[in-house]
């Protein structure tokens, strides 16, 4: 596969490599923790690392990201600490959400991660409001909301695209089309077969991009982010990607897809592709990539130790945080 030439800096390219690798190693370890019964099932993002990595490489630390039930990769790409993420997965007091939200609800406002959400399509209007806030307060912040092909059929997306368009909001709607809503293939559930095309009805640009190429994602989102930041309004990006695992832990994806298809996408693996690009263009060498691997693995291992050694929340935590105040 030939990647297009690009003007991405070496620093950014290596940052993207490290992020994608860290996501994969984190997810692999999180699956092990789930297999050990420390959390009961999770939605793995393995295979989809490139989409948030390419986009977040262009975001400022105070820009906003909102996610879905499958959001570990969004959080890591936006810079949420692995330690607090892993602790959250294990329901520990040191977790990003004090153990109250878990795998489907990781949020870290200080990093601009305004939350994963367990209800499909539910976060899209929320993100629209986040973008509205930035516009009214004139903060120059951009909001990125991730959702899947499944959510593209929810009214919430359509209502939000309309609102964002009439108000020229600084938001990027990013559909990670991993081809399946649970077991339902998008070719069945998405009329017209193109999610990007749905933008045209709302007079906003709709872009389809190879979601397994972090460089392509980078280029498309650069245009979208610049458009948002300059006050020209929203963009819809449909990134064609693939989840390697089932919908959740116990799901066997071969009940609805084929091994041939899985292999087709695994041969186009986003991490391997970037690695080939970096080596063939002599941007870096194998020795350096090995160092990045070791560093990523170490950070995941540290996070895992931290999470396992952390205490569970105290019983009274059950009652706190329901309200800011309630008297």
């Amino acid at each position: 596969m030939k990647e297009h030439s690009t003007e991405i800096s070496k620093t950014t390219l290596l940052w993207m490599y490290e992020k994608m690798l860290t996501i994969r190693l984190f997810e692999t370890q999180a699956n092990r923790e789930a297999d050990a019964g420390k959390l009961l099932g999770m939605h793995s993002s393995i295979g989809q690392e490139a989409v948030p990595t390419g986009i977040c490489s262009l975001l400022e630390s105070n820009d906003y990201v909102l996610g879905t039930h499958r959001s570990h990769h969004h959080c890591i790409a936006k810079g949420v600490e692995l330690k607090n993420m892993m602790a959250e997965l294990l329901g520990k007091a040191t977790g990003t959400n004090k153990g109250k939200g878990g795998t489907m609800h990781i949020a870290d406002i200080n990093k601009g991660m305004l939350g994963a959400n367990g209800v499909v399509g539910s976060n899209i209007p929320v993100a629209t409001g986040v973008a509205l806030s930035a516009k009214i307060k004139n903060t120059n912040q951009v909001t990125v909301v991730f959702f899947g092909d499944g959510a593209s059929s929810q009214g919430s997306l359509h209502e939000s695209m309309n609102l964002a368009s009439i108000w020229d909001l600084p938001i990027i709607f990013v559909c990670e089309n991993n081809l399946y809503a649970e077991s339902t293939p998008y070719e069945y559930a998405v009329a017209g077969k193109s999610i990007a095309d749905r933008a045209s009805g709302y007079k906003i640009p709709g872009i389809t991009v190879d979601g397994q190429s972090v460089i392509d994602i980078y280029k498309s989102s650069k245009i979208a982010i610049e458009r948002a930041r300059s006050g020209k309004g929203p963009t819809l990006i449909e990134a064609k990607t693939y989840r390697y695992k089932g919908h959740f832990g116990a799901d066997n994806p071969l009940s609805y897809r084929t091994e041939t298809e899985e292999n087709y996408y695994k041969e186009r693996d986003c991490i391997e592709r970037l690695k080939k690009y970096l080596l063939s263009n002599e941007i870096t060498n194998q020795e350096n990539l090995d160092k990045i691997y070791e560093k990523s693995l170490e950070s995941v291992n540290e996070a895992t130790d931290f999470a396992n050694e952390s205490p569970f929340p105290a019983p009274e935590e059950l009652f706190s945080d329901v309200y800011v105040s309630y008297k």
Partner: peptide
């Protein structure tokens, strides 16, 4: 109690 359902297993069991 008048709270949402918590994630953490020890809290959920309470």
């Amino acid at each position: 109690p008048h709270t949402p359902v918590p994630y953490s297993k020890p809290l959920e069991s309470l």
